[in-house]
Computed example of a mutant assay.
Amino acid sequence: MKIRGGVLEEIGRSRPYASSLPISVSELELDPPGNGEVLVKIEAAGLCHSDLSVVDGNRVRPVPMLLGHEAAGRIIQVGEGVDDLVVGTRVVMTFLPRCGECAGCAADGRLPCTVGGAANNEGSLLGGAHRLRRGSGIVKHHLGVSGFATHAVVNAKSVVVVDDDVPPDIAAVLGCAVLTGGGALLNAARPLPTDTVMVVGLGGVGMAAILTARALGVETVIGVDALESKLAQAVEMGATQVFTPASLTKSGLRADIVVEAAGNAGAFEAAVAATAPGGTTVTVGLPGPHARSSISPLGLVAEARTIIGSYLGSAVPARDIPIYAQLWRDGKLPVEKLISSRITLDDINAGMDELADGKAIRQVIMFD
C-alpha cells in the first residue's frame, strides 16, 4: 500500500533543519504484514531526542530511514501467526521489542533484548524483515517502529494494547517518554515517599520522571536544567524545588535518588555529585558513543552510593504501560502536561529545530 512518511535522507545536515530539510515527507510503499506482524494506522507520534540524535549524527543509523519510535494507532490488519491482537485495537508502539527468549528478556527489564537491539541497529523489524520501499530501494525502519508515517508494519512484539479511553496522543507519549523517565523510578530506583528525588535534564523524559515521582507519592521532587524556562515548567509538573546547575552547586543540595535524563557527560557528572550518601544515581540519558565522564570512585565507596544504568526505564512494556495508563486514568499521572504542541507531519523539520533548541517538551504529530 502507499503511505506518506518522514524519511531521514542524510545525517548531519546543517541547521536550521527547516531550511536544510534532512527529513523528506514523501510517498512510500509499505508491504503487508508478514508472519508475526501487524499493520497499524498511526494516530499520533511524538518527537523525541532519540529521533533528533539520528538527525544530528549523535546516533548513527543506516539511511534512508523512516524515523519515529514513540507512536500509537489502531491495528487494521494482522499477519499470520498473530492470535492475540485483533483489528480495531488501539496500541502503543515500543521501540525495543522483546523476543522473550534471550538472556536480556529473562532479566525482567533490567537488560535490553539482545535480538531486538540487533534488529534496531540494522534498521529492520524483529526477525530481520524490511517492509518499507521507495522505488526499487529499501527504506530502513527506525527502532522497529517508523512512526512518522500514516501507517506502519511492526512486529506484534513491538506493540502493547491500551483501552480506547486513552487518547492517541497520551498513548503515544506512554511509549517512550513515560516508559523511560517513569521507569527510572518505578523499576530502577523504587523511591519511598520520604525519599528526595532529583531529576537532572528536563526534556520529555525528565519531565515524565517528575510526574511519575509525584504519582508514586514522593513528597520532595527537585528539577535541574540549564534553561530557566524549563524550571518554570517543572514546577507545573509537580517539582517542589528547581535549580540551574550553577545554583545547585552553590546550594550544596543532594538527593537520595538522582535521575540523569539529559544525555550528556556533564549532566551525568552533576547527577553523581548531587547524590547523597547511601543514595542512587539512575542514568537514562543517551549521550554520544564517544562521551566520557570523570567521577570519584572513592566517593562511591566512602559514601556507599550506587549508579544504575537504565535503558528504556528498565521496562517490560507489556507490564508497565498498563500501570501508567491506570495512573493517568486515576488522575495521578497527568501525561497531557508533557505535550507542548500538536503538529502535522509537514512540520517535522521545524519540529526538530524546536527540540534542538530546548523549546519543546513533547511535540506530537497528529494524523487524521
Rank of each mutant, 00 (worst) to 15 (best):
H290D: 15
G88L: 01
E269N: 02
M93Y: 03
G36I: 08
G266H: 06
C48E: 04
G206M: 13
G100T: 14
G57Q: 10
A72H: 05
G309C: 03
D320N: 08
V364R: 06
A177K: 06
C102A: 12
Q77T: 06
S341R: 13
P191K: 00
S124R: 12
T212P: 15
E80H: 10
V166D: 01
M207T: 13
I257L: 10
A315C: 14
S340Q: 13
K2L: 10
D353W: 00
N121W: 08
H142F: 08
L253V: 15
P32D: 12
V55F: 09
V259G: 01
K250Y: 06
F95R: 14
L66E: 13
T344K: 15
V199G: 06
R254V: 15
L286A: 12
N35I: 11
R305K: 15
K157G: 03
G223Y: 07
L21I: 06
L211W: 11
V242I: 12
G34T: 08
P245F: 00
G12N: 07
A232I: 02
A215W: 15
A18R: 14
R98D: 11
N120Y: 00
V178H: 07
I361A: 14
A270N: 14
A18W: 12
I295H: 03
A350Y: 02
I11K: 04
G73H: 02
A271V: 01
F95I: 05
G117H: 09
A276Q: 03
L185H: 09
S294E: 10
G36V: 09
R329D: 12
M352P: 05
V154A: 13
L227Y: 09
R362E: 12
L52N: 11
Y311V: 09
G135E: 07
S53Y: 08
A246D: 14
P193I: 00
E10H: 07
D330Q: 09
G358S: 10
R110N: 06
C102R: 08
T283R: 04
A107L: 00
A271R: 02
L355N: 06
S314D: 15
E219Q: 11
G127D: 10
R319I: 05
G147L: 02
V91A: 02
L179I: 15
E101I: 14
L248Y: 03
R305T: 01
R342F: 02
N121H: 00
D31C: 04
M352F: 04
T212H: 04
R190H: 03
D320F: 02
I365M: 06
L125N: 07
Q77D: 08
P317Y: 01
A274C: 09
S19H: 14
G263H: 11
T281A: 11
V221G: 14
R13W: 02
G128H: 12
D368T: 04
S24F: 00
G68M: 04
N120K: 03
V153L: 03
R292G: 05
K332P: 08
L66V: 11
G285R: 08
R13F: 01
P32R: 12
L96W: 04
G123Q: 01
K332L: 15
A318G: 13
I348F: 05
P62T: 00
V55G: 09
L52R: 11
L286R: 11
V63K: 05
V139E: 10
R98M: 10
L185K: 00
V284L: 09
R13V: 00
D256A: 13
D164A: 13
P22W: 00
T196S: 12
L30S: 03
P16L: 04
P317C: 01
H290Q: 14
D165C: 04
L132T: 14
T281E: 03
A356K: 04
